[in-house]
Design a protein around this nucleic acid. Structure first.
Length: 421
RNA sequence: GUGGACGUAGCUCAGCAGGUUAGAGUCCCGGAUUGUGGAUCCGGUUGUCGUGGGUUCAAAUCCCACCGUCCACCCCA
């Protein structure tokens, strides 16, 4: 790169064709899985009112406190680049009163923004695919959403992921537990580092998933959340397990699993991979029964999850570029004109047929070389000789070279016939 | 945000106890074969050695700062 050239902003990466192909593959697999299950796509704005996120994700969370791209626009409105899509989705559901017409099953995909220090699997602009369901309170929803994620891994051929599950109980149960946990940890405050003391004051549940061995040891005798669950939560939680077993989806219960966003209730989960280093969470989510009401809607139970496209893409094997059926090679100005006419006919008759143009300057040899690199099955050669005879030379590029001369008027039909083989 | 490692052609990397014009492979372009690909051979293009400063007769090489990437923490998808 020459000095003075402008480079991309930190953490905001270009997706070159190879990686973009992975993204497209995941997106189309997701579309297939979701649409088949009766989910509708929703497209949401990237910019929202900042308050939407402070109210939903939680003011004391890192996402809102340190990572949000918040700014004032020309009118002085406080706006933010979305750090996640659940909040916006809830906002849209309330704003259009979608719940009026019954439960809503929605899915989305798009870029999210968080001002974090970039690392592998962690970028400032990253991409998520997610689902959100509104209006279903029963545990079959947990099972449905988890099954959809499993279907997606199956569809993409991804193996070796671990599903970790936990329940946080209702908001009230969590409040009681939180108080008990805070009391226990306060009595051992001398064992906590400065970061954990901060968490103790603001969000003691976060201490549960600490990686520190000393903390985990300390937690061995701490109160456990399951003791604080009421009968209803207990039954709900058990039913989730039963349905997952019935569907043959393996999981591991992790009582230490809490999530970083404040709005979760009841079931939370995380799909992790050991192949990704520190950023091991591939897909996660949970129930958020209180959020709709909290954001100004009527009480509505809801649940969703999101996956990180960059992380899932990293688990995908190499996907090959689809090979073209043919490369249309022209030599000289007159042949180029005829070639463009032919190309138009091909596109009109068979829009999906992969035919790549090789017109313009360059030797026949270099154009055939290009056809070879693209792994095309056929070369359609059109030069002065062919023009004079009213034919197109059709050369087989697979295996030993074989040529045949097809009358110009019959080329389109010939190509279509040969493409099916 | 904290700590650490690293930064040399488009890509992968060598060169670094300071010493002439900075190298290989790959990719790309051309030729051997005037209009016929893949193999082989031959030739060619490409770099302010991340940026800026310092030390020195001399810096890709030593020192400092900044920027970036990666790793861990942190956070999370």
């Amino acid at each position: 790169m020459k000095p003075g050239a402008i480079s991309r902003v930190r953490g905001m990466n270009d997706l070159l064709p190879e990686e973009a192909r992975h993204f497209a593959e995941i997106e189309s697999a997701a579309r297939e899985v979701f649409e088949a299950a009766g989910y509708g796509e929703i497209r949401l704005p990237i910019v929202e009112d900042s308050r939407l996120f402070t109210r939903s994700i939680g003011e004391a969370t890192d996402i809102v406190e340190k990572e949000m791209y918040a700014f004032e626009d020309r009118n002085g409105d406080l706006l933010a680049l979305r750090p996640e899509a659940t909040a916006g989705c809830v906002r849209a559901v309330i704003e259009h009163d979608l719940i009026r017409s019954g439960p809503q099953r929605l899915w989305y995909h798009g870029p999210m923004f968080r001002h974090e220090r970039p690392q592998k699997g962690r970028h400032r602009q990253f991409h998520q695919i997610g689902v959100e369901v509104f209006g279903i309170a029963t545990p079959d929803l947990e099972a449905e959403l988890l099954m959809l994620s499993q279907c997606l891994w199956d569809r993409l051929g991804i193996e070796g992921l671990t599903l970790e599950l936990n329940t946080l109980g209702t908001a009230e149960e969590r409040v009681h537990y939180r108080a008990a946990l805070a009391a226990y940890l306060s009595s051992h405050e001398d064992a906590l580092g400065p970061d954990d003391r901060m968490r103790l004051a603001r969000n003691p549940l976060r201490i549960l998933d600490s990686k520190s061995a000393e903390i985990q040891e300390l937690l061995a005798n701490a109160p456990v959340l399951s003791d604080f669950l009421g009968e209803a939560s207990r039954e709900h939680w058990q039913r989730v397990g039963t349905l997952l077993d019935a569907a043959g989806i393996a999981y591991r219960i992790n009582p230490r699993l809490v999530r970083g966003l404040d709005y979760y209730t009841q079931t939370v989960f995380e799909w992790t991979s050991t192949a990704l280093g520190a950023q091991s969470a591939v897909c996660s989510g949970g129930r958020y029964d209180g959020l709709v009401e909290q954001l100004g809607g009527s009480p509505t139970s809801a649940m969703g999850w999101a996956l990180g496209l960059e992380r899932v893409a990293a688990l995908l094997g190499r996907t090959d570029v689809k090979r073209p059926c043919a490369v249309l090679v022209t030599l000289g100005a007159a042949a180029e004109e005829s070639g463009f006419a032919l190309m138009r006919e091909i596109r009109q008759a068979y829009p999906g047929l992969r035919v790549v143009l090789a017109t313009g300057p360059g030797t026949l040899k270099s154009k055939l070389k290009r056809a070879d690199r693209l792994r095309a099955r056929w070369a359609l050669i059109l030069g002065d000789d062919e023009l004079a005879k009213g034919v197109v030379q059709v050369k087989a590029l697979d295996g030993p070279a074989q040529v045949e001369w097809v009358p110009r008027a019959a080329v389109v039909a010939h190509l279509a016939q040969v493409a099916d083989q």
